[in-house]
Simulated scan of single mutants.
Amino acid sequence: MSAGPLSPYRSPEHRRRAVRDVASAAGGEVVPYGQSVEGEALEAVRVPSSRGASRRVLCSANIHGPEWIGCEVALALLQTAADAGSPAAALLHHAELWVVPCLNPDGYRRTFERQGVGPLVHLRTNAHGVDLNRNYPLPGGARRHRLPGSGSTTPGDTTYVGPAPLSEPETAALDRLCAEQGFWASTNLHSFMGTMIPAHVDDRPCFRHYARLCRAMADAQPRHRYRRLAARVLDTFTGEQEDHQHHVHDTWAVCIEVFPVLASYRQHWRPPSTFWRFNPHDPGPWIDNDLPGVIAWLRAALDSPRPSELRAQASA
């Protein structure tokens, strides 16, 4: 049931079964919210609040094909939500939990079929060759700067932004889900930088508050504490998911890069495949390290006003 040469990670079929198993164990339901380019169901798991809380939080992962460690952390969040007394179960006292373990199932399957071997551009994107984390619209008035990684308008490039914002069924479907559910907070799991990258904001109240939220996550990480990567002036908009969630859906949103660069290079100076640059051979220690931080970040965000409310309070 594992992914053969990519073991101990899961094959696409095993991942889908695991989603159903953990959803059932946690008392949740699988909610289809769209289809990928190749027709695979895009699925979220909804776990109701144990105390009827109306706020909703989202944990999503694997927007890039080979970044499977994020999917494992997301599944672990659901698994621990079934354990009474766990931090994840305590989170359900305050909010309804939504989890999307795999935002890019076509990229996941392509990575599996190629056994994680090949140029990053062949594994990272969706079936149209679009980097889904560059396909979100920029906030009003913003423009894309020509900086490395900020997104390319050239098809075939690793960070190709697509023909238009939200042109891809995967991003358009998640945008609809966010609009419908009004998530209070969102953690988007990637790899392999070992950092927290909150939504890019240039207003001082939200910038400072993101620093507090990231500090709450770092304080909860038992072994390796991630640093925040953010700047009010030097940062730029690139069409990323967390920026769109913050500026359009009024959500506290952060990209969490699981598995630090140094740990990746300690594992392999020259990895046998692209896959093993992005994923640890043993996901367990990184799940144990990062899951408490993810929960702490969401919990701290739930204790906060909405970003728009915070700005209004600061200007009053």
Rank of each mutant, 00 (worst) to 15 (best):
A84V: 15
N279E: 08
G118Y: 03
L213W: 00
A173E: 06
P119M: 10
V261S: 15
V47F: 09
G182R: 02
W252M: 05
A312I: 07
N279L: 08
G52E: 01
F207P: 08
D235E: 13
A84E: 15
V233H: 15
E29P: 14
G239A: 01
L147Y: 09
P260S: 14
P198A: 00
P5L: 11
P292A: 10
S191C: 04
P137F: 02
W286R: 03
N188P: 06
E180C: 06
S167Y: 04
I69L: 08
R306A: 12
G293H: 04
H64A: 03
P283V: 00
E43W: 02
Y226F: 11
R204H: 10
Q267T: 08
Q313S: 15
N188K: 00
R277F: 11
R10F: 14
V130P: 07
S167G: 09
H268R: 14
A127I: 04
L291G: 05
A173G: 09
G85S: 06
E43F: 04
R20D: 14
G140T: 14
G182T: 08
N62L: 13
H93M: 11
V45P: 08
Y9H: 01
H145C: 13
D157L: 08
D288A: 12
S11G: 05
V130T: 07
T159E: 14
A142D: 01
R225G: 00
L77F: 08
E13Q: 13
G293L: 05
D288Q: 12
H14V: 14
D303Y: 00
W286D: 09
A216I: 02
P260Y: 03
E38F: 11
N279R: 00
F183I: 06
A41S: 14
V100H: 01
E43Y: 07
